[in-house]
Write a protein that binds this DNA or RNA. Structure first.
Lengths: 217, 217, 217, 217
DNA sequence: CATGAATGAGCGTTCATTCAT
DNA sequence: AATGAATGAACGCTCATTCAT
């Protein structure tokens, strides 16, 4: 069920044609940006951590911001869509018995995903306050939600009377915020020790609350 | 009802013995830190914005971090307790008809509060990723929740059968995350145009969802 | 014998018309300049140590250098002449049995004097490398040696055959360097624990060596 | 006889792997520190004098103090031992006819050495007042004197009856202070015009005095 | 591709000095 | 006489970026 959960960054690294040194630069940047923040991380830090000369950092990336982009772009191109919208590969090909089944699946799935990609999410969370560009990219992604398979699935549940007849964005808002109420504390405190059992417990709690809140009475 | 909603920063400014120039330094720092972030704001920026010589910035504040503290400390000492715990002044002296009345009151109240103090919240949100100290302070504040009047009020509703018998922290988690799902987008995009009508609309939506989710069925 | 040995600075302080606060400024400056050096001592340091506002420092002294002058001037005007030349008050009015008696007297006397005024000597020693002015003042003082009572006394010993017939400057050079070989380590390490017994021991050793070296064979 | 007299700084410069620019930084620092003092020399001064960007100064040296160390360390590691202790290379392999021969050799030799390395000695003399570390290093060097070949040589002269039976430290103290009485004025006034003839004259005068003072009567 | 010395603008901070009160 | 807020030039130092090798 969760076999496709993976570290999006590690995956995207392998798909590039970057030399091992350049890959090390990206990996070190991810670690350091995530831990110390983008501004507080110097290119010297990155080079040292990657075991590379400082000039090498600029061989593949135009500037420090280019490294940030190389980290966040695949995140925005892949993670965001998968988390909030693109259920074609999984959700689309799977039959859900009911709303509970559906919520349980996507919440657990996305929790594991988020924990796997904690580092990028931390970077993303810090950068979104400073980058209007980033905000717009997210807005655009969210804008496409209305037509994705997630929307179809939810509308199907509404038709079946399993789901309250609120507007789609508001439904997503509540699902997402309930999801985030479990994940954000982990992201902020940078905890590394969340077990799958814990995730399942959280999933149960989240789904219970959402079913309460989103089922027509 | 919302007469005590205020800008916590403006209030704390007046209580200090700071000279007008020093107050200008703080105000400019608040604006700039909030807009550009702490790291991206130079002390030269602050001085210019405050119409003050750069040395003046260091007359009252030991260093740049001291300014940040002067901004965040009253926030943590006053805002946080008021938002999440200290209902003695308002909630404690007020009788609520039912859970709906209660939720409507605190959510609208806190929304207005958050919007008034958007700048500090933005700074806070950015800093919490980098400051373990900040995380701990928040943890401590949250730890005191169990015994505050908010807790008593919720337990009262549980006794009356209006509120599900979930543990207090989880109840608070869902209330808070629902609240944040409306506020965070405003904080992140730094919008300034939220009307009171909008706030009332959001309050209604949040309360509707929470009543659904938290009422025993 | 050593009744007139005193702290030249304390003495000169009392002769000024400075207010108590201004005297405190001078005393604190002496302590701090001596300990940390002139450059490393800020006017803020001085003000704090003196328990005075920073502006007060500039009430009496034109600038920081003015404080240094107020410390070093009496030293150069009084200490230097007394150490190397002006024996009118003591030496001139005293009869010495022989060279040993003479050397014993001036060396012990000057050692006590130097230890009493260690702070100024430390400042002087540090400043002389940077101030050509200071060097010239010392040169001028040394230039007057040829005609002082010290010169007369030494020439008298030469006439009596107790003292080698070397040129006066060279005699003074050897006396002074032997004297300094005991005092300079104390000045440099800023020791405070030199007993009068120790001084007498050093005096004996210095005189023994000088009598060896300066007596015609 | 004096063929190995050299500028210790120039020698140590060549032994490093520093780039020409970095060597220029060190050379300029030596000149400026020596002339103006460490505190009064800014890193901008150094960069300008060396014809280098200011950042370059920090490429090789951690901070301004690091430059000072790079100048003083070889001095303390090489000059001090050679001046006061390590006679293995020269003294150890040479036979001295008598005390006069010995004193003449080391005094002239060390005078030339000191004049060659006047700049570092000036810096050293200024820094020793402010650096306890430096004082300790010197103390340690002096502590090793008791066992060096210099000690052996002097004890040999004592056994032969050419040298008074005073304790070794006191003998060294008098030799050193007599030596310094000629050199220190040059160091302080930063004179550059001392001829070898002058050095030989000084040597003669110093040796004459010391033979007087240190020969048993 | 990789290096690392070199750059110089800009940073946070200090500090001697001034001046209105 | 004394204050202390205000000043702004200068300081030591960092850092993203370039480029010859």
């Amino acid at each position: 069920m969760t076999k496709n959960i993976q570290n999006i960054f590690a995956a995207s690294l392998q798909q590039t044609n970057l030399s091992p040194k350049q890959q090390a630069v990206l990996q070190s940047s991810l670690d350091l940006f995530s831990t110390q923040g983008f501004n507080a991380t110097s290119t010297k830090d990155i080079a040292q951590e990657a075991g590379v000369a400082e000039g090498t950092v600029y061989q593949q990336f135009k500037n420090k911001n280019g490294i940030l982009q190389a980290i966040l772009d695949p995140f925005i191109q892949s993670v965001l869509p998968q988390v909030v919208q693109d259920f074609t590969t999984e959700v689309g090909t799977r039959q859900f018995d009911d709303l509970e089944d559906f919520l349980t699946y996507i919440i657990k799935n996305r929790m594991l995903f988020a924990l796997e990609n904690k580092a990028q999410i931390r970077i993303f969370a810090q950068e979104i306050f400073r980058s209007d560009e980033l905000v717009n990219q997210v807005k655009n992604q969210l804008g496409t939600l209305k037509t994705g398979s997630l929307a179809h699935q939810l509308q199907e549940f509404q038709r079946q009377g399993q789901l309250v007849q609120w507007p789609l964005p508001r439904l997503l808002q509540f699902v997402f915020s309930t999801f985030m109420s479990f994940i954000l504390p982990v992201i902020i405190t940078n905890r590394d020790d969340v077990s799958e059992t814990q995730v399942e417990q959280w999933t149960t709690e989240a789904v219970t609350f959402l079913l309460h809140g989103l089922t027509p009475q």
